[in-house]
Amino acid sequence: MTSDEFLDIYHRARDEGNAQLIIDALPYATFLGMRALEQDGELIFHLPPLESNIGNPTLPALHGGAVGGFMEMAAVTFLLMSIDHDKLPGGEPRVPKLVDISVDYIRACRYVDTWAACEVVRQGRKLANVAVKVWQQDRNTPTTTARSHYLLG
């Protein structure tokens, strides 16, 4: 896929308010099996239980890396759907690049439906700071949280 082809998908996703178009264009997000959905006007993300994402087959629990990857892809998609491209020097976005991520594994992610919500703490001209919260049964009992930085544009 060329940058122009990706930009077409980006603009279509923004125009239609359809974040799933972006996820479908990101191979690793598709690999994880994640989906985007809107809940009470908020863009959130769903990771259905997949055998290929298990880290500990005995519990069973999801792999910390798969959960970390889910959080990163959620943040990337959330940024693309909410980015203010007028702030970017080039005016056109690219897929945000992960600069650093810090993940707290508060409790094990069981082999059940998993959800993520994002908050763009700050979008600058070059970098964005995104906080991600992951939960399973109860949104008020997060299993995993992350703070992360992305290079934009």
């Binding site: 896929m1 082809e5 264009a25 690793y28 690999f31 910390g64 890396g65 990163e72 993940v103």
Partner: peptide
């Protein structure tokens, strides 16, 4: 399958988090 940016073909951060973890 692990590509995070289809325009550059670079692997996403997630597989690297999984690898180093």
């Amino acid at each position: 399958e692990l590509v995070g940016d289809p325009a550059t073909g670079a692997v996403a951060g997630g597989p690297m988090t999984a690898l180093l973890d």
